[in-house]
Design a protein around this nucleic acid. Structure first.
Length: 888
RNA sequence: GCGAGAGUGGCGGAACUGGUAGACGCGCUGGAUUUAGGAUCCAGUGAUGGAGACAUCGUGGGGGUUCGAAUCCCCCCUCUCGCACCA
């Protein structure tokens, strides 16, 4: 045989060498006419090597890139390494090797593996975040943000991870634990840190989500993280004082039900408001609250705690005094750090009030017709009348507060100002009613729908100067200081005389010194602080002695702009070349994991908006399209070292070939959902590639034989031209042509919708059809190779060469399908009687109903079910089915 | 608790806008070829009953809408992911 059998080891090495030698994957960035920027999330180069999860992510992106390339785009698919950061540093500490020594070794291994996978990567634009040529610009970005007031320093309670020995951002805290140390609770420390003012862009970050073409899951995660809420800030007058206590609420409509106030223990007014009798209890409580770890404080299941301040505020709606408490369920960071508590309509307030016997006044009644499932026991009964009816008195509950629990109420803490009121309290509530309804016990607003009341009452309060409608966001500013070694030093200088002074741009980069002991836990301060030659410097403003900032910036800053650098990776004079940037950005397609939805992807968007506003770029959204891939699991379980079920790509490539591994990974399931990797299934893909190769070898080699051909004379009719039992080269028969054109259409559509699994299934069907065809023409042989190319690039190149075509299959153009040939001439139609399948008939496509009906009733199986029945109705769906509705 | 998504053969998964459920692959069964095969090829493979043609059942559970429901509506259960005392 003139062609050798399928041998991925040989074929893949051959084409990888040729792509490198001919710079096949390095588009001319300056001259490209149809640029397509295909981006994948660059990896952190771990010592373990490329994880199969990375391979999955990259393959899915590479398929997009290669598909666009065949379609005629110049595709730029760069790669780099996110080698700065705590992750690398911790590993270096563990094996006691300096990260500067470690990184090159790991990166080399990653490059080898990435080449091995046949990704269409342009290695001439690689970026490496710890390279001074790169982090010089990371520092430059810090300076730009600083210049524009978006980087600032503040003392604030920040998240300190004792495992990392550094501060981490809100986004890196998961349920009070460090994302890197799942067993380690994050502590709150009051430290002076650098922040980026991402909150200034909260609304824009939210608004743009309406139009950017991103995976919906990712957009939802971002919306939740930004957490916009509309409400009002309301001022409550303090009893016996001239000033007020300001709260934030989203439910001004429940104002009449506000029976007490709660301040966060950290609230600045706490010490001042505490009555002499309560001062000691309050101080003790605040101290305990500060010691509480975030993980404990955040636990919603924990019983509510608190102490009364011994002071009252005046409810502006009722004019009555209500007591002020402090409790750690109110957070100082959100809103104004104080709330009005409406126990009847807020579950947390309800729990607190129940525990401490505070009055609960219902002010919204579920609308009539709202199901009894609404959570009041008296939903029905209360409907009979509203005001006088539920005349239970709150005082009973209130008084029990005093003796009850672990605090001593002291003097004036008696709630609700002495029980003289006859306000109805609905003691029958078993939990807070948070829904809408009609107002009750709300003076002039009684009877009004609560939604209307919300607007009305806000307006009225605004008119009286007591409130202001406001918008709040959950999003906090981005803390970027890290008390570690392995990152870009923050380019700031602290001078006793001049204060905090930026390093002049021409002095960048501020080089990270190579120091022996880089561990963060060595006594004597942070690594950079201990290193005198770095720490001690002169002030750029006054020339006097000064100190460098000894923190490094967050790893997420490195990765928040790398895609801007790629096209200009070799530009020493500026972070990005304006012309190249205009041509290639925003990124056309970005593919990556959704675990970065609120970290990397949010920071990146923020930086882009800031750059746009500074006039540095002319777009504000970095990625035209973003698609999140799903999670790859192994036999139903998460892949992890502890499970010992990590799939090593090297093994599978050695055994089956890179093309097989690539295809198998995306064949496992829908790309956006991930897949379950089972070793047992991969042979199916390998067989598929074997069969493809054999078919082409047989057809093009002209040599008969091969087992495919041998089997055919066992059963089916042999094509008959001499000994050639494989398809010969010749005109395509119509059924094969139809299958071919249907597949061309389907594969293109499926790739665009990331349905790689069904695209591959379609290719398998087409192969079966082609193998049994008597003859195959050049168009079909070429088209199949092109359809295969995005998935199995090495084999596609090999087949292209076997076909005798010059050049590269990726420059060959995507085959066009003939719409007329995607439709069958004859279709099979389902025949139902009363919705049950009773037979099928073959008729011409688009046949008229009468003809189909005639054919259907002629069918024996159908006729049996129509006997002695009257046909009352016939439903006909052209080319699909006919359904007889009958009566006995 | 809130938000998003998902429950389909022995397994991974298909199914356009409500129109023949189970494409494709793994596995399994039978056959061909073979010295042999864990190679290759062909055929079969949801369950139950039946020799059979066929029939009945069948997409997490229960109701409903419809000539017709995996798909739409209501209730419930389970799983995954995200957020989680954000007022």
């Amino acid at each position: 045989m003139p062609f050798e059998p399928y041998d991925p080891a040989r074929i893949e090495a051959k084409w990888q060498a040729r792509w490198a030698a001919e710079r096949t994957n390095e588009p001319d960035l300056v001259r490209a006419e149809h640029p397509f920027y295909c981006l994948m999330m660059f990896p952190y180069p771990s010592a373990e090597g490329l994880h199969v999860g990375n391979v999955y992510a990259f393959t899915g992106a590479d398929i997009q890139g290669r598909y666009q390339r065949v379609r005629g785009h110049q595709v730029f698919e760069p790669m780099g390494f996110d080698a700065f950061g705590i992750h690398s540093e911790n590993f270096a500490m563990r094996i006691n090797t300096h990260p500067m020594k470690l990184i090159p070794r790991n990166v080399d291994n990653f490059r080898r593996q990435l080449r091995m996978m046949g990704l269409m990567l342009d290695w001439s634009h690689e970026v490496l975040t710890p390279d001074p040529d790169y982090y010089k610009w990371t520092q430059w970005i810090f300076l730009q943000l600083h210049k524009h007031g978006l980087a600032y320093r503040k003392k604030a309670p920040v998240n300190w991870c004792p495992g990392c020995h550094t501060v981490i951002s809100n986004e890196q805290v998961i349920g009070g634990m460090c994302e890197r140390h799942p067993g380690t609770a994050v502590e709150k420390k009051n430290l002076e840190q650098w922040f980026f003012r991402i909150t200034a862009y909260a609304q824009r970050l939210l608004d743009n989500l309406d139009w950017i073409d991103w995976s919906e899951v990712t957009k939802t995660a971002q919306r939740n993280w930004i957490g916009r809420s509309e409400g009002a800030e309301v001022d409550f007058k303090l009893e016996g004082r001239d000033d007020t206590l300001r709260v934030y609420t989203t439910r001004p409509d429940t104002l009449y039900g506000a029976t007490y106030m709660v301040m966060a223990p950290e609230h600045p007014l706490v010490a001042e408001l505490a009555s002499p009798a309560q001062r000691e209890a309050v101080r003790a409580y605040c101290e305990a609250a500060c010691r509480l770890k975030d993980a404990d404080r955040v636990d919603a299941a924990r019983e509510k705690t608190g102490v009364p301040l011994g002071a009252n505020a005046i409810n502006p709606a009722t004019g009555r005094p209500i007591p002020i408490w402090i409790s750690d369920y109110v957070l100082i960071e959100y809103g104004t750090g104080a709330i009005m508590a409406v126990p009847a309509h807020d579950q947390r307030d309800f729990e607190f009030a129940s525990r401490f016997g505070l009055p609960i006044i219902q002010v919204i009644r579920p609308d009539d017709g709202v199901a009894a499932g609404a959570n009041t026991r008296e939903a029905a009964g209360d409907g009979t009348d509203d005001a006088a009816g539920a005349g239970t008195n709150a005082a009973a509950g209130a008084s029990s507060a005093a003796g009850g629990d672990s605090f001593s109420p002291g003097d004036g803490a008696s709630p609700q100002g002495g029980g003289s009121t006859s306000v109805a309290a609905t003691t029958s509530l078993t939990e807070a009613y948070v829904g809408e309804g009609r107002m009750i016990h709300s003076g002039p607003y009684d009877g009004m729908p609560s939604l209307e009341c919300l607007k009305e009452i806000t307006r009225d309060l605004e008119a009286r100067g007591l409130a202001k409608g406001t918008v709040q966001y959950r999003l906090r500013d981005w803390c970027i200081s890290r008390q570690r070694y392995w990152g870009p030093p923050i380019p700031m200088i602290h001078c006793a005389k001049c204060g905090v002074v930026p390093v002049p741009e021409e002095q960048l980069p501020v080089r990270l010194p190579e120091i022996e002991d880089f561990r963060p836990d060595t006594p004597g301060g942070k690594p950079l602080q201990r290193h005198k030659p770095f720490h001690e410097t002169t002030c750029p403003a006054c020339g006097g002695p000064a100190h460098r900032d000894t923190d490094v910036s967050d790893n997420f800053l490195d990765s928040a702009w790398y895609f801007l650098r790629y096209p200009s990776a070799r530009d020493a004079a500026r972070p990005w070349d304006p012309a190249l940037t205009r041509k290639w950005l925003p990124v056309d397609m970005y593919v990556g994991g959704n675990e970065h939805a609120v970290l990397h992807l949010m920071y990146t968007r923020f930086l882009c908006m800031a750059f746009k506003d500074m006039g540095l770029i002319d777009f504000e959204e970095p990625f035209r399209k973003f698609r999140a891939h799903g999670l790859l699991i192994k036999e139903g379980a998460k892949m992890s070292k502890t499970h010992g079920n990590v799939v090593n790509p090297d093994d599978h490539v050695a055994r089956y070939g890179a093309d097989t591994l690539r295809m198998y990974l995306v064949f496992l399931g829908p790309y956006s959902e991930g897949g379950d990797f089972r070793d047992s299934g991969i042979v199916g893909i390998r067989r598929f590639l074997d069969r493809i190769h054999r078919l082409y070898a047989d057809v093009l080699g002209g040599a008969p034989g091969g087992s495919a051909a041998e089997a055919r004379d066992g059963g089916a009719v042999p094509p008959g031209d001499g000994d050639g039992r494989a398809p010969r080269r010749g005109p395509l028969e119509k059924p094969t042509a139809i299958k071919l054109h249907q597949t061309i259409k389907k594969v293109g559509e499926d790739i665009e919708s990331f349905s790689y699994n069904t695209a591959i299934a379609a290719l398998m069907e087409l192969l079966t059809e082609m193998r049994s065809a008597p003859a195959l023409d050049d168009f079909s042989l070429e088209a199949f190779v092109k359809l295969l190319a995005p998935f199995a690039p090495h084999e596609a190149e090999e087949l292209w060469e076997m076909l005798g075509r010059g050049g590269c299959v990726f420059d060959g153009g995507w085959p066009a399908y003939d719409p007329a040939l995607t439709l069958l001439d004859e279709v099979e139609i389902a025949v139902q009687v009363l919705g049950k399948l009773r037979g099928t008939v073959r008729v011409a496509r688009d046949a008229a109903q009468d003809a189909v009906r005639a054919a259907a009733v002629a069918d024996e199986g159908v006729a049996r079910h129509l006997e002695e029945k009257t046909i009352v109705k016939v439903i006909y769906v052209p080319n699909r089915l006919v359904n007889f509705v009958v009566r006995p």
